[in-house]
Amino acid sequence: MTIGVLALQGDFSEHIAILKRLGVSTREVRLSEQLDDLAGLIIPGGESTTIGKLAEDYRLMEPLRQYGREKAIWGTCAGAIFLSRDARRKQPLLGLMDITVERNAFGRQVASFEADLEVPVLAAVDPRERPYHAIFIRAPLIETVSGDAQALAQLEDGRIVAARQGRLLATSFHPELTGDDRFHRYFLHMAGV
C-alpha cells in the first residue's frame, strides 16, 4: 500500500516525512502514470496557481479527477483550493469537492497564525480527546460546503477550515508542519491503509 504525494511544487517532503514516520511507503507524483496503484493521494501546501498550471501543462487534470472519483485524496491549503469547485478566481481547479473557497481569506503573510481547533472526528484515530493545534499560512477559508460535503472543523467564529466528502478531505491549515500526526492517520484510515 503506497500513498502518493503530488510533488509539482510545495511542501510535499514534509508530508512524506510524516508518512514515513508512520511506516507508510510513499511516492512523489509529477506525471499521470505515477498515480497507478496508489491507495491515496495528498496534494500539499504550496501556491495553488503554480500547482494548477503545472498540472494542466503535464495533462494531470483529468487523471487526477478520475483518481478522485475512485480513491482518497487529501488537500492541505493549496491542495484544498485545488480540490474545490470554486475559488472566486480564474485558475485550474479539480472541482472534485462541493466546497467553495476564498484564497488568502485572512490577509497577507503578517496575518498568518496558529490556533487550537476542536476536531471531533479525530477521536476515530486517537481516543485521547484534545485540541488540534493548526497552522494557517496565507490560508484559504472554506466558504460553503454543499451536497455530500461536511464541515469537520471551524474557527471560534464558526468559519469552516476543514471538510470531508466521502473519500475526499480538505484542510485550510497544514498538519504537515506539526508533530501531531492525527490528521495523517485519519487520512490513512479514510484511504483504507
Binding site: 510533488a7 509539482l8 511544487q9 510545495g10 511542501d11 510535499f12 517532503s13 514534509e14 501546501g45 504550496g46 501556491e47 503554480t50 491549503c77 493549496a78 503573510q109 498568518s112 497564525f113 496558529e114 497552522i135 494557517f136 499560512i137 496565507r138 497544514h174 508542519l177
Partner: peptide
C-alpha cells in the same frame, strides 16, 4: 508561520 511560508514556496 514565518518559516512556514518559505516551506510553501519549495520546489518553486
Amino acid at each position: 508561520v514565518k518559516k512556514g511560508l518559505a516551506q510553501m514556496l519549495k520546489g518553486g
